[in-house]
Design a binder for these strands. Structure first.
Length: 274
RNA sequence: GCGUCGGUGGUAGAGUGGUCAAUUACAUCAGACUGUAAAUCUGACGCCUUCGGGCUACGGGGGUUCAAAUCCCUCCCGGCGCA
């Protein structure tokens, strides 16, 4: 008998957090965040992290548990989430997995196993100098099976596959998509125009807080490069503070980027619609 | 007013007689996704098509040429210089 878990997903700015709190109150649940940016400590305003007050007494997990100075990965998330879910269930409560990072949700629900191969900075640096063709050739020698499923135009993926293959000698087979829990999916969304308006309104309400937050993070030692890689609010905030963008350019570019992100999220979640 | 440089697809911006429906970037639309996933990557992107091709397009009009976004004339618009 599989245990029950509820998933609240959907694109950004659809009110997932509020919905999850409401639901948790009704069914005596606890919320587990599935958000690749809210996982970091100090990324609050820009990531739209729920505040203590908004939690209204409902326990929340996996918010602000990683350092933004270090790289955090799905594999780590998966481990933490598993542990948390087990804990919640053991106390007789219902876990509510809530967030917009499809990959994270996927990793938890479908019990994906990730190979124990850590990032090798030296190897990555070396490989990043190679062309796509050379990388493909390398992977072909190391693990021809993986080559069949990989996106041969995606350098980042190729490098990771080679990294795994050259350490383990092969790339572990993709685990089957077998659901671990009996999941109840709740997908939140709005028509395009409405969602665009919500994104716009939220951005303007938060823009001040965003720049002060990014300033603070940089002072605390998070590099511009890292901030730019964090994307959206952090990328545009960092570009603006470095004077690489005007305020106007930041606002326009960021709003556009958030919309593009929302659509990518939709694309991901469409998979589950069937 | 004279001179001069320029007006190209949603935008920026290449091209300067044929191989141009027009490099490229951005935007837009669709999609992928097993260790950075708010990241990274892919495809489509004038209109029509029986997928062979057809049609309309590089400010407007006229012309030269077998052939023009590319050359000439003229008109309109913008920048700059001289008045």
């Amino acid at each position: 008998m599989k245990q029950k878990i509820i998933i609240v997903c959907g694109p950004t700015a659809t009110g997932k957090s509020d919905y999850a709190v409401e639901l948790a109150k009704k069914i005596d649940g606890e919320v587990i965040s599935a958000d690749s940016r809210q996982i970091y400590k100090g990324l609050d305003i820009g990531s739209g992290k729920i505040t203590k007050k908004e939690m209204r007494g409902v326990p929340h997990h996996l918010l602000g548990v990683a350092s933004p100075k270090r790289t955090f990965s799905v594999a780590q998330y998966k481990k933490l989430a598993d542990k948390t879910i087990k804990d919640i269930l053991s106390r007789g409560k219902t876990p509510i997995l809530c967030g917009g990072t499809g990959f994270y949700i996927d990793a938890v629900i479908y019990d994906q196993s990730f190979p124990e191969v850590k990032a090798d900075a030296k190897l990555r640096k070396l490989l990043s100098k190679l062309s796509l063709e050379e990388l493909v050739k390398k992977l072909k020698n190391l693990d021809p099976k993986r080559l069949k499923t990989i996106d041969t135009k995606n350098k980042v993926r190729l490098i990771r596959a080679i990294e795994i293959a050259s350490t383990l000698g092969f790339v572990p087979k993709k685990s089957k998509r077998k659901p671990l829990y009996s999941a109840q999916w709740i997908y939140l969304d709005f028509p395009d125009e409405v969602l665009k308006q919500r994104i716009h309104a939220r951005l303007f309400a938060r823009i001040r807080g965003i720049t002060t937050e990014v300033t603070r993070l940089h002072k605390e030692g998070v590099s511009w490069k890292k901030l730019e890689a964090l994307g959206l609010e952090y990328r545009y905030g960092a570009l603006f503070l470095q004077k690489k963008l005007t305020k106007q350019e930041m606002l326009e570019g960021l709003e556009k980027a958030i919309w593009q992100y929302a659509k990518r999220q939709r694309t991901w979640f469409k998979k589950y619609a069937k």
